[in-house]
């Protein structure tokens, strides 16, 4: 039974550096909401039993209590602002390009959504997109483990959404715009890249794969790819 109520258990395996920060926020909110829910339900059910209709007992005439109103307004406000403050650094780190990590070792790739595939374009040996040695693969994203990956995300037709459940990444891909996304995979493996925004009749089956390689395997893949 508890398995069904323990939401954090259901998160997909985390395989990115910043995923833990996001998951910690999830767990924090989970406990806040769980405690509030249990408390409210306990009071509700308690009142429902205790104050049910009984012959000869009249309800008490109570119009309200200013102290209580101020208390629960203040407490909720404090929790809300506290949560917002805790969330800000996580959000900025994930989404604001000026705060992204950057080093010469980083990997660059362009991802473009189109009905109903992900085009992954690699810059090739010169490290620049839009040159002759670019390589485009359908639905296969190859990255080395423990390296920052910068994704230039765009779309050719409708809005798609680049969803990496195991990296805790989701970003809509917009036609006519390029959006910067980054992640840093910490575990070798093959992960799914579904499209999370309705993009037409093939939306359900729009699925790419993220292949996280060891450094050696990645070097080998690069060698094979640009042979």
């Amino acid at each position: 039974m508890l398995k069904w109520l323990n939401f954090p258990e259901w998160l997909p395996e985390n395989a990115s550096t910043f995923g833990e920060g996001v998951d910690n926020l999830f767990v924090l909110i989970y406990w806040i909401t769980a405690i509030v829910f249990i408390a409210v339900m306990a009071v509700l059910i308690g009142f429902m039993i205790k104050y049910r209709f009984k012959e000869g007992r009249k309800a008490d005439y109570i119009e309200g209590s200013t102290t209580l109103e101020i208390t629960w307004t203040a407490v909720t406000t404090v929790i809300v602002f506290g949560l917002a403050m805790l969330s800000l650094p996580q959000w900025n780190r994930l989404k604001i390009p000026s705060q992204f990590p950057s080093s010469p070792d980083d990997v660059l790739v362009q991802v473009s959504g189109k009905q109903f595939n992900w085009d992954m374009t690699y810059p090739g040996p010169d490290g620049k997109l839009g040159t002759d040695d670019d390589l485009t693969l359908e639905n296969q994203l190859h990255v080395p483990v423990n390296k920052v990956v910068h994704v230039k995300l765009t779309s050719e037709d409708v809005i798609h959404s680049f969803f990496l459940p195991n990296m805790r990444v989701k970003q809509d891909a917009l036609p006519g715009r390029t959006i910067d996304v980054w992640f840093d995979a910490t575990k070798v493996g093959k992960y799914e890249i579904p499209c999370a925004e309705l993009c037409g009749f093939g939306h359900s089956g729009m699925l790419g794969y993220l292949n996280v390689h060891t450094d050696d395997a990645y070097a080998k893949w690069v060698e094979e790819a640009w042979k």
């Binding site: 009071v43 429902m48 049910r52 307004t73």
Partner: peptide, 25 residues
Amino acid sequence: MLIAVPSAIKTFNWLGTLFRGSIRY
């Protein structure tokens, strides 16, 4: 998240209405 504040006010006030009432199911 601020919407949680008026929502909480409403929920607690419904609970307060049940408090010491004579509830007909």
